[in-house]
Simulated assay, not measured.
Amino acid sequence: MLKNKYVITAIVLLSLGAIIYGFTIVGEQPAVGNKYIGFGTVGLFLIAMPLFLLKESKGKNVKDYMLNEENIRKMRDIEGKKSKKD
């Protein structure tokens, strides 16, 4: 199977192409142009973006990025150390 990177890139390029094509024909055929723009937007935000986020977040701990009491204390400690150095 093809690598996910190439599939995501192809979806993004096709979606951008559909959006650009939709904007070029929207003056002559508004209904068809709006459909191309809509399908391109759906391709970008409902297909390509979730696939990209799944690919990039694989193997990472979600708890490291959540804002909870422990992480707030860690951030305050780091900021305190930085301000003492200045």
Rank of each mutant, 00 (worst) to 15 (best):
M1A: 10
M1N: 07
M1R: 07
L2D: 10
L2A: 12
K3S: 12
N4M: 15
K5N: 14
Y6S: 10
I8N: 11
I8Y: 12
T9Y: 07
A10P: 02
A10S: 08
A10Q: 04
I11T: 10
V12A: 06
L13K: 05
L13F: 07
S15Q: 01
S15L: 00
G17N: 04
G17D: 06
G17H: 05
G17Y: 07
A18D: 03
A18G: 09
A18R: 04
A18Y: 03
I19W: 01
Y21Q: 02
G22A: 03
F23R: 04
F23D: 03
F23C: 00
F23M: 03
T24S: 15
I25V: 12
V26S: 07
V26Y: 01
G27H: 10
E28G: 08
Q29Y: 12
Q29K: 12
Q29R: 12
P30L: 06
P30F: 10
V32T: 11
G33F: 00
G33N: 05
G33P: 03
K35E: 09
K35T: 07
K35D: 12
Y36I: 00
G38I: 00
F39H: 06
F39E: 02
F39Y: 11
T41N: 07
V42D: 14
L44N: 00
F45T: 11
F45P: 04
F45I: 05
I47F: 03
A48V: 00
M49Y: 13
M49K: 14
P50T: 01
F52E: 11
F52Q: 13
L53K: 12
L54S: 14
K55R: 05
E56I: 13
S57K: 05
S57Q: 09
K58L: 12
N61M: 07
N61I: 01
K63V: 10
K63N: 13
D64L: 11
M66T: 09
M66N: 09
L67P: 05
N68M: 04
E69Y: 11
E69K: 10
I72N: 01
I72D: 01
K74L: 10
K74H: 04
M75T: 06
D77K: 15
I78R: 11
I78V: 10
E79V: 12
G80I: 02
K81P: 02
K82R: 15
K82Y: 13
K82L: 15
S83C: 06
S83E: 11
K84F: 13
K85V: 09
K85L: 11
D86K: 14
